[in-house]
């Protein structure tokens, strides 16, 4: 029996460690979820199972306006980032060399978001650009670009260059090589990075905080409601957002093997 325990031992510490860390990571989330189903409002202890907070959630229009705004911002910034990335791919597929310029995108992820936000804020005020969803979108594209451009460039370079040469020798023009070969081969990576960009945008707080003007994204709405204290409606919202996150992560995972981003 001692032998069996000895066999377990090398696995004991890692398992314990993993368990503790994940417990730490998930504790608040699970508690949130659990109490979203409570009949009574917190801090009352657990009373019974109820969906009434979800009902309330769906009847609070401000939340859904903010949610909708966040979606718009996320989709728009992702769309812009991916379009710019596709331009880059087209350039590369036609023989362009852009490698030297990739490092200029590294700064987007390195700089603290606060500094970037302040910079954009003063820029927008100088240019007399009104703050609103558009400015948030612009801010988010920067973060997105810092992520998509270097990764997609690396991914493109990992492709066998002979494939494009084969396409050329078989008679395909640059445009045809791009549409038939480059783009299809890059699609999984495009989708994966697009997903990440969307999530980064949807979850973002700092940039929106500075550049939103009077518009509200979901993060900003949540901030203001925190200031009012705990509300079970937020719990309900949390569980819905969690489901959405799970779906997106799941989508990303199904692409993971094709893209080798992680």
């Amino acid at each position: 029996m001692l032998n069996a325990f000895k066999k377990l031992r090398p696995q004991l510490f890692p398992t314990l460690f993993l368990f503790l860390v994940f417990f730490f990571l998930y504790l608040p989330i699970i508690i949130l979820l659990v109490f979203s189903f409570n009949t009574r409002e917190f801090p009352a202890p657990w009373e019974g199972f109820s969906l009434k907070w979800y009902y309330e959630l769906f009847h609070t229009p401000e939340i859904w306006v903010a949610f909708f705004n966040s979606c718009i911002v996320g989709i728009a910034s992702t769309f812009i980032c991916l379009t710019l990335a596709v331009f880059m791919i087209y350039f590369l597929a036609s023989g362009g060399k852009i490698g030297k310029f990739i490092p200029i995108f590294y700064g987007n992820l390195i700089i603290p978001e606060t500094v970037l936000a302040v910079g954009l804020l003063s820029y927008f005020s100088l240019m007399h650009i009104p703050l609103g969803l558009l400015t948030i979108i612009v801010a988010h594209t920067l973060v997105g670009l810092g992520f998509t451009i270097p990764i997609l460039y690396i991914r493109y370079r990992e492709l066998d260059p002979k494939i494009f040469e084969a396409s050329q020798t078989l008679g395909a023009s640059h445009k045809q090589t791009f549409t038939k070969i480059s783009l299809p081969l890059m699609t999984p990576a495009l989708i994966a990075t697009g997903l990440v960009t969307f999530i980064l945008s949807f979850d973002d707080f700092i940039l929106a905080y500075f550049t939103s003007g009077s518009s509200l994204t979901l993060s900003l709405y949540l901030l203001s409601s925190i200031r009012y204290g705990i509300s079970p409606i937020i719990n309900a919202l949390a569980s819905i957002l969690l489901i959405i996150t799970c779906t997106l992560v799941f989508l990303f995972f199904s692409l993971k093997t094709k893209t080798r981003i992680l």
């Binding site: 066998d160 002979k162 084969a166 396409s167 020798t169 023009s173 640059h174």
Partner: peptide, 17 residues
């Protein structure tokens, strides 16, 4: 290259995956 009627068989085949 794409205008020449000359085709290439590459060392590692370069098939479109």
């Amino acid at each position: 290259a794409h205008k020449r009627k000359i085709n290439v068989v590459f060392q590692n085949y370069a098939l479109f995956p």
